[in-house]
Design a protein around this nucleic acid. Sequence first.
DNA 1: TCAACATATAACTATCAAGTTATATTAGTC
DNA 2: GACTAATATAACTTGATAGTTATATGTTGA
Lengths: 110, 110
Amino acid sequence: MEAFTILGDPVRRRILEHLCVQDLSSGEVVSSVGEEFGISQPAISQHLKVLRENNFANVRVDGARRIYSLEPSGLQDVDQWLAPFRRFWEPKLEALAKEVERGRKLGKQN
Amino acid sequence: MEAFTILGDPVRRRILEHLCVQDLSSGEVVSSVGEEFGISQPAISQHLKVLRENNFANVRVDGARRIYSLEPSGLQDVDQWLAPFRRFWEPKLEALAKEVERGRKLGKQN
DNA sequence: TCAACATATAACTATCAAGTTATATTAGTC
DNA sequence: GACTAATATAACTTGATAGTTATATGTTGA
């Protein structure tokens, strides 16, 4: 499955949003995301499978639990695809860079 | 349709890649992308409809032609969704964010 | 060892989106 | 005004995928 297709699913996006904050066991994902979307444990398990098979998540075993963590490379690919388009809204980013620069100067003179 | 779902389709992604470089008429998109993927004029037309109805493309009329151009806001939403994840592959960004914050504070107290 | 817990897989169904062909709409040209 | 070109829409078919229930696999602890 392709990166954008994977992110097309709202359940998977929410799972990633949670993993962005902290690692979670499969069961914890079921409790939070599964609950929120009203879907079953197998449904979540299948989503987690998609995420780990496509480099969006990592798993480590902790006894009977599987602990999921965020794997950056999947999202990074998406980020890179976006790169050439950023010039369309980059002006703002440039202003930001200038502000950082201003911050540096102020910092120095204090 | 949701932003990521829209980008899930390889034909639409290619269309956007072309529009990133230059504006194109519907017919030109059919010739380039339609040709590449071996799909018909209506198929392309439908994709263009999706892109314009979801703020990924703009159209202007030029006689019998419709000229498509890139509309940033759709992609920008995607870019913003990605923002919180960037710290996983861009340690620099965290430092950058902190520095901006510091700059703001300095600005206020002046 | 057995019961319960935690998670994954299998098999199936239904929905949705992407393509098709056919046709409508609108603009330019003779 | 009729003809052709450029594009959009309609109606339909099909394939992929997200969900379901049922079951398998593996772990813990009494």
